[in-house]
Design a protein around this nucleic acid. Structure first.
Lengths: 346, 346
DNA sequence: CTGTTAGCGCTTTCAA
DNA sequence: TTGAAAGCGCTAACAG
């Protein structure tokens, strides 16, 4: 593999000159030599090493992207947003699957530090505060989504406003005549789980439904978890007629479990999810859900992060914030409670 | 951020010594100094720069992973396999979404080259031969899955044996009494699409079903594509009673379209997919499908690639090959053709 | 407009 | 058992 030196001799100029035309600093380069250099670069099929360049300029143009489970299609759209914002600026992305495992996350964070990524984007991955402090300690900015810890400098925080979407969902359900609700939350140690639950309860209260009318059970954001939670929920004497799951995967699990318990959907049970991942629309009945602006989240996370890079000292100064919102998408998994569905099992 | 030199002076030794203990070459280091160095490394919270190291040893321990669309949960499992094989060996992964766009793929490949990845894993992404030749030209080994081009040196090829899974699916369908089949293929310019189709047709032929009894239509591996294809297919006078889609996403699209056309599933139409992505099991009815060993594919791809790295000259010598197989998973989207379903629209 | 020179942070002979 | 020194491939003053 040729180096810049090879190109230099081949073109009969110095390394610096080659470097200059390569990095677009040809403000003061004689067109003729510029052409000559470019020609030999072409002919030698030369591609400058970004690792050498990284070492020299102390910037790698790489970003670490941490997700809990890339199998959740939610992340796919977020990643598209990230790529669209960063690829054209020359960034590449390291993907890390934490698998909800703090230890694995720690290892990943360390490897990202070793690789001197310019920044990291952490997406709802149960980011222990440890990771973040490790990063800021090493002077690496990060972009986090729905984060509850104190916003330290060098952080960009994207917050999701769940209110509009969840409120609309609740009003829809209440308007349909539902009175007995249930919520399957995400892991309670995740801030975003507590947040979703609180907004749901508030919206319900605003509609005159007391918290005593809503059963709450903790899930884990997985289909299986939703299924288990539903199993527990639907066996109760006072079975709810509507359930709101903290994400679509759990909602999908709820539908499966309800069906295997012999319930008709949506007559016997209305279910709404959150995320609007693509499988939601393909369920039978199609799942009503609170849509997240997935692409936007990714795009913003990356954009703001790059904005941070512009600052003289990225890891100090005000943290950057951005807000995105949600909306309810009504599909067919919600309907009025049937006479048979109110309080007894069929 | 401290450098190895800082550590050296702090520990009162030379850079070389620090380097040696850091890289585990303490075969000939006095235990005392070793301890001392490790202690100061700890206390300074020093993490050696992998980019500097990469430049020095001419190996980056990074792999580029190219997928067509990370939104397909299929890739998630493959990526888990890749990570499990490579993470512990110190590799990190650059993710690239080609989005089925050859031009974008080309850009990604070039950026991977610039970053001097040690290898790339290309997963069914409509890898134009161009990419591969570019890579091999630059001396970068690659791992490809279901590749039809001549196996050039420096390549590891994972081939999927579709025969067992598809054959079982076909026998199941034929056993159920189906006579009119349809196939929704992937993009025909993809080798794997042609392969799946051929195996399907062969299996059918082996069961005495002539190709004239099977309608074939080209899809694009997306839900929407499956839907469109089904729309066309199901309007025909001679409507098939069973359709085999080349992947689960298209099969899911088929189910949706069939339903919106007023057909009952599986009574009026049996559908089987391929991949066994998680949403398949959550459909109503649950989708029968030909399962791919997704995790295994990723694991093998990475393992073999590392095996290639061991060779004196990775980009020459015999290409490495590995084979994985498929199996049929019967769920509820397949049933015998009903009297009403044979040849007329309801 | 272009070349010289000194790094960037680590590894690795070669000597001692 | 350890240190000195020369790179790895590129960039960036500083001269000229």
């Amino acid at each position: 593999m040729p180096t810049i030196a090879d190109v230099a001799v081949a073109a009969g100029v110095s390394k610096s000159t080659v470097s200059r035309v390569l990095s677009g600093h040809f403000s003061h380069i004689k067109p003729a030599t510029r052409e000559k250099v470019m020609a030999t670069v072409e002919s030698m099929n030369f591609r400058p090493s970004r690792v050498a360049r990284s070492l020299s300029v102390r910037k790698t143009y790489t970003i670490g992207v941490l997700v809990s489970d890339i199998g959740n299609p939610f992340y796919a759209d977020v990643i598209h947003g990230i790529e669209d914002a960063g690829l054209s600026k020359g960034y590449s992305f390291f993907l890390g699957n934490t698998g909800f495992d703090p230890r694995r996350g720690m290892d990943l964070v360390n490897s990202l530090i070793d690789r001197r990524v310019d920044g990291v984007i952490s997406l709802f991955s149960r980011a222990s505060e440890d990771w973040m402090s490790l990063l800021s300690q090493q002077g690496i900015p990060a972009s986090v989504v729905n984060w509850d810890f104190s916003l330290t400098p060098g952080l960009v925080s994207i917050s999701v406003d769940f209110e509009p979407g969840i409120k609309a969902a609740v009003e829809h359900l209440v308007g349909l005549g539902h009175k007995h609700f249930a919520h399957i939350s995400g892991p309670v140690d995740l801030f975003t789980s507590r947040q979703r639950q609180a907004v749901f309860l508030d919206a319900l209260a605003a509609c005159g439904i007391p918290a005593s009318n809503v059963a709450i059970i903790e899930g884990d954001f997985s289909v299986e978890g939703g299924r288990r939670a539903a199993g527990e929920l639907l066996k109760r004497r006072d079975r709810p007629t509507a359930v709101f799951a903290a994400n679509d995967q759990m909602a999908i699990g709820v539908m499966a479990e309800a069906r295997s318990l012999g319930l008709e959907l949506p007559e016997d049970l209305s279910v709404v999810g959150l995320d609007d991942i693509w499988p939601a629309a393909q369920m039978e009945p199609p799942l009503s859900t609170v849509a997240m602006p997935r692409y936007e989240i990714g795009f913003q996370a990356m954009e703001r992060l790059m904005e941070l890079f512009q600052r003289e000292d990225p890891v100090s100064g005000e943290p950057l914030e951005a807000q995105v919102t949600t909306r309810f998408i009504q599909r067919a998994s919600t309907a009025g409670p049937s006479h048979r569905g109110t309080a007894t099992k069929r």
